[in-house]
Design a protein around this nucleic acid. Sequence first.
DNA 1: CTTGCTATTGATCGTGCGATCAATAAGATT
DNA 2: AATCTTATTGATCGCACGATCAATAGCAAG
Lengths: 220, 220
Amino acid sequence: MSRAVRPRAARKSPEERAAEIRAGAHDVALEGGLWAVTLRSVAARVGVTPALVAHYQPNMEVLVADTFTAVVAAEMAEVAGIIEPYSSPTDRLAALIHTLVETGRDDVTAVWLDGWSLGRRSAPLATAVRGQMDAWQHLVLGVVEAGCSTGEFTASDPQTVAWHLLGMVDGLSAQGLVSYRDPAARGRLITDALEHALGLPAGALASPESAPAPTPAPAP
Amino acid sequence: MSRAVRPRAARKSPEERAAEIRAGAHDVALEGGLWAVTLRSVAARVGVTPALVAHYQPNMEVLVADTFTAVVAAEMAEVAGIIEPYSSPTDRLAALIHTLVETGRDDVTAVWLDGWSLGRRSAPLATAVRGQMDAWQHLVLGVVEAGCSTGEFTASDPQTVAWHLLGMVDGLSAQGLVSYRDPAARGRLITDALEHALGLPAGALASPESAPAPTPAPAP
DNA sequence: CTTGCTATTGATCGTGCGATCAATAAGATT
DNA sequence: AATCTTATTGATCGCACGATCAATAGCAAG
């Protein structure tokens, strides 16, 4: 099989090595949750000694917190990219819900759960978690407010609606980790509730047509 | 301070000792979450050797799963007892939401989070978690259906409403663990959403009068 | 008082954790 | 080619985990 002994790691610039370690921690977190992010697991993933990982980090508490932020921020950027092509706030919201709830994202959900759980005992992590929750709130709020501007949505308090959506997504995603009900049912529950909250006709937030409205790409 | 050496534990009947261990695990879980439920921590809590705890359990996986069930079932029984005295479904629902979200239950919330998280890797725990989720669904569904019967609530699908409520409670409680917003705001978000979903007038689910309608106790 | 049953213990094994530090060797500089 | 800088390592510490097992000691029955 694979060789039992690890060759000495190539010498790299501190910046490059630090980036590798961050990436390794990222991967480990997606595979095993934040609890799995340990000196040894990250070192093995990067192909390096645990001592080197320790050398690049003040302590594991901050590596875990930073990794949480990286994982969640990356996911948010990805989702933002997915919904961006849709032209109307309604379609964007539908795509957002569909993406979040119905396209297996258990790995990121597990990271969120660990963040809330571990955050009780790690101040840096708790701060990171609150920061990402605010970022998500900001993203969703933008869509809701846009819909209110165009008149598509009817909501007296967009802030509350955004929070409502995220609260349900968080709760139902957590439930999904132990296979409670199926993704489609979870999606329907959320779309129904949101259509209600936004004064939309039933079905308005059902899965958007798979091909997003094409945004003509500017010539490079 | 306290003596450094532990006296030999008194000899007890297996049933009694097993009950002590269950109780010890229960306490440990409430204090530190399911991750803290370990051979050594439970043994220390009970005042006994780790080996004895191991002796009474097939392995830690099942003790953790059983402890989860015990903690959550106890909480549900407590909540059921709190809302029972209220006479109308509306008051019962208001009391339920108020109790769940606005009276610090971070300890039990942490146990839920650990259940979802650890449940990914422990089959017995995952089963236990699903079982308790069903139990909660049953409790809430009873209240919602009662309200529909009396005509207080207008809901086409009580199942969905119950799930909606629990999904939000789970999500917002998790958020609360890292001090995201305050309990009152979380409660308001839920009551507003549910009043909407149940066709209730605004404010109908606001915190019930603190003194529940007295149920005449039967003479013993 | 002696005997038998068994609840309880102490010792121990192997694993994985975070962390530290002197020693090493790869690459850049001269 | 010799020298310097520093990225990387190996060794090690102390701790906590789950698990196992022969030895011990408390209690009840005889």
